[in-house]
Design a protein around this nucleic acid. Structure first.
Lengths: 228, 228
DNA sequence: CAATATTTTTCCAGATTGGACCAAAACAGC
DNA sequence: GCTGTTTTGGTCCAATCTGGAAAAATATTG
């Protein structure tokens, strides 16, 4: 089973055209937006096609059906998300554990700002047991969690992260990150917080680090640790 | 404009019957569940009536229309939520600031466990600007926030809460609380965490307090504060 | 028993649903 | 250029669902 984002191609005797990729992209973006606003059930394929500025039968052509479109849309944002996290980890791979986790949090916040749908879709699907939730967990969440749980544990061992169940702690971190940006409209109206302001954004990252990773990194060779 | 949860009664020449209250309650519970799962647009009045085990024209009779039903349902859960918080504050009104905030967090967690719809509805409505969001903010969120912001500030001043924008800090607290319980299905499947387990529940509360309110209360008269 | 409150049943007209179908157009490869 | 494939445009469909209206039947109150 080859990994194809567009499932209708079985034996592409001729290569895919450019305009085809464009409409797929437009449909994916529109699908992400629509699904994140109204959930799977509350979104119609026609709504998605309209947002994409595309005739609705093209959804059938490119993605077979609504369910496949949802999965492709989820791959679209969660795949990019995982890449963003992996990139941040790669960039800081030679740094200390706290630095790496901080980089992860910054990457998370930045991604969530541009793509608040990430968190909305998760809440939507976690609302009630359904096959899409299982699929999301197996294909996108677990791979992230296995990595981050290990990092959290390490940080707890060296006294940087607050002790307690690592899974719980990480969930609080991702909620404080993705959830905060998903509530953008509400925060603006209820507290005057503008999550699109770059300063607010870095304030959020810094606050999360301050709260969840309060400890200092232990000196690698021999150094006093009281550098507050 | 009298404050009536059932807007169809204008001049009740005769008192409301018991069975009427029962069906209203059933409809409200069903509405909360349905709206939290599928959002406002994704929920049909017929779906709500079915969940309530009631004929759907009764919605028109009791709540006039879908929009009024949504508002009544929101009043139903957010009103009870505010009462739960106020009750906790009242009970601990003679205690110190950290104790009061801790009581608030415990109450929040317990309420969110029984009513995860609270957070789901908020995320649903904050997804895109809409009149229901404004209504929710003005009628239910702001009253809570004005109280809690003050408490957070006080806790920051005495070094118990982490410094930073109080509104941001409080949002992180409520996300770590309500959001965590709204993700119950996901946490179970992805991390094996059962948010219905009482022990897990108190672990959540304790962790939130440990993370967001790490400082000790200063001694009231004269006492060393270095008790780590 | 009479008046009112509540529920039941039936109906509607219209919109929306996901998807099928085929002819036209755009494109890739030769 | 020509040819065959890919992609799109336009149309249609049958089924379901939509919120709500209306009137008849029942239950409850006073």
């Amino acid at each position: 089973m080859p990994d194809e984002s567009t499932l209708h191609n079985e034996q592409p005797a001729r290569k895919q055209q450019q305009r085809s990729l464009v409409t797929q992209q437009k449909l994916l973006d529109a699908a992400v937006e629509a699904f994140s606003e109204n959930g799977f059930k509350g979104t119609s394929t026609r709504d998605i096609a309209e947002r994409a500025g595309v005739h609705h039968p093209l959804i059938t052509y490119h993605f077979k059906n609504k369910d496949q479109l949802w999965r492709a849309a989820a791959d679209h944002i969660f795949g990019a998300f995982r890449n963003a996290l992996a990139g941040a980890l790669e960039e800081y791979k030679d740094q200390g554990a706290k630095q790496r986790m901080s980089a992860l949090i910054h990457a998370y916040v930045n991604y969530a700002k541009n793509q608040p749908a990430l968190h909305k879709v998760m809440v939507q699907e976690a609302s009630y047991p359904n096959p899409r939730l299982e699929w999301l967990i197996d294909n996108h969440l677990k791979p992230i969690f296995t990595v981050t749980f290990g990092m959290i544990k390490e940080l707890q061992d060296i006294g940087v992260a607050v002790p307690g169940n690592p899974a719980l702690l990480f969930s609080m971190i991702r909620l404080s990150t993705g959830g905060l940006l998903a509530l953008g409209n509400e925060l603006k109206a209820s507290s005057g917080i503008d999550v699109n302001d770059p300063e607010t954004l870095s304030e959020i990252s810094e606050m999360i680090i301050r709260v969840f990773l309060p400890g200092d990194m232990p000196a690698s060779t021999s150094e006093s640790k009281s550098d507050q």
